[in-house]
Amino acid sequence: MAGGNRTDPPKGRGATSNPEGRFESVTHEPVDDGWGDKDPAPPSLRTEVAVDAARSAITWNDSPDLPFDRSVNPYRGCEHGCVYCYARPTHAYWDLSPGLDFESRLLVKPEAARLLEEELAAPDYRCAPMALGTNTDPYQPIEKKYGITRALLETLERTSHPVSVVTKSTLVERDLDVLAPMAARNLATVTVSLTTFNRELSRRMEPRAAAPNRRLRIIKNLTSAGIPVGVLVAPVIPVLTDGELERILEACAEAGAGSAGYVLLRLPHEVEGLFREWLATHYPQKADHVMSRLEEARGGAANDPEFGSRMTGTGAYAELIGRRFNLACQRLRLSGHDNALETGLFTPPPPPSGTQMSLF
């Protein structure tokens, strides 16, 4: 069960508390017992890792907002700790908190590569670009120890299956020896997520992700290796980061990015409360302005789940962001993200041992 709320944000973490998930039957509420502290400071928060005994690797979707219909996520939860992460509510399904639990109580899928190979071997499987890291970052810190993302890439390379990777981690550079040969056959692209160049803001908002300027070097290094790289300006946060939109695109284009996309801040389910709490803790004087501008672009709410508008918002403010983005991309010759990768080279792996092989 998730722990109770914390009064002081733990060092090196994004969320400032650990609220119960929406499916839990028991909640905790701090009470002033006269000792002058409603909730004493907890000990240092350490990352815990457990095994996710998943029975499949590929997640399918039919969302019209996404340029892919299949993805693989090797980890649940993300140690990067981005306070705005739209994936935080998924932790509630495990009776864990979308708050600090999401970034400190992680689940790994050690059998992901084997499961993926079995699914690619299925007789009815049809090849299309696989997205890697759509829910949580496939190159978050624990990947250095577990290597599940690396194993997935090796499976995709071995079968000549196209893949698109999204990350904000320098660890992606470790796998240049796999990604570069795939890219040479038009089988791989990488998108680097970048939110702000304000180092203080980035450290508070996405505390364990790569520093903003280091992400520019990721783009340069991958581009130099022949890998097509795009930038995802995400999320665009009203008041806090929206003024940097053109600067981010310019810097990424100069670093070698060839495509770009953006997403307006989304605050589904528990993320709204976590983000409001984070604002009140770190930017109390701007909190009301940030939320009022966001609500203006989200139909009066903090989140809009509707297809067609959930990524970019609606209304005058959202339209202005869209126009600024499009004009900057035209000027910088940045194309939109697409998955025009090669699918004709795909060679299915042999069926798992014990499976009857086809006669033809």
Rank of each mutant, 00 (worst) to 15 (best):
M1K: 00
G3I: 02
G3E: 03
G4F: 09
N5T: 06
P9H: 11
P10K: 07
K11C: 08
R13V: 14
S17R: 14
N18W: 07
N18H: 14
P19F: 08
E20G: 06
E24Y: 10
S25T: 13
T27C: 07
T27Y: 12
H28Q: 12
V31Q: 01
D32N: 12
D33G: 11
D37S: 15
S44C: 06
L45T: 13
L45R: 15
T47L: 09
E48G: 03
D52T: 00
R55V: 02
A57V: 06
A57I: 03
T59N: 11
D62F: 14
P67H: 01
F68A: 10
D69W: 14
R70C: 11
R70W: 15
R70S: 13
N73E: 09
P74G: 04
P74T: 07
E79G: 14
H80K: 10
V83L: 14
Y84R: 15
Y86L: 02
Y86M: 10
P89H: 04
A92Y: 12
W94T: 01
L100C: 09
D101Q: 09
F102A: 11
S104F: 09
R105V: 04
L106C: 06
V108F: 02
K109H: 07
E118K: 13
P123T: 01
P123G: 01
Y125N: 05
Y125W: 08
P129L: 08
P129N: 04
G133N: 05
G133P: 02
N135G: 07
T136C: 09
T136L: 10
G147C: 02
T159S: 15
T159W: 13
S164C: 14
V165L: 11
V166W: 15
T167Q: 14
K168I: 10
D177K: 15
V178L: 12
L179I: 05
P181I: 06
A183Y: 03
A183E: 01
L187S: 01
S193M: 07
T196W: 10
R199A: 13
E200Q: 14
L201S: 02
R203Q: 15
R215N: 07
I218K: 06
K220V: 05
L222Q: 00
A225Q: 06
T241G: 02
D242H: 12
I248G: 02
L249C: 04
L249I: 01
A251L: 09
A253I: 00
A253P: 00
A255P: 05
G256Q: 03
A257H: 02
S259G: 04
A260M: 00
A260Q: 05
L264F: 06
E270S: 15
G273W: 05
G273S: 14
L274D: 10
F275I: 08
F275N: 12
R276V: 13
A280T: 12
H289V: 09
V290Y: 15
L294W: 10
G299T: 13
G299R: 00
A301N: 13
N303R: 10
D304L: 12
G308H: 04
S309Y: 10
R310W: 07
E319V: 09
R324E: 03
R324H: 07
R324L: 04
F325V: 04
L327A: 08
L327M: 04
R331D: 02
L332R: 05
R333V: 02
L334R: 08
G336R: 06
H337V: 09
L341P: 06
E342P: 03
T343I: 15
L345V: 01
F346E: 00
P349Y: 11
S358M: 05
F360Y: 05
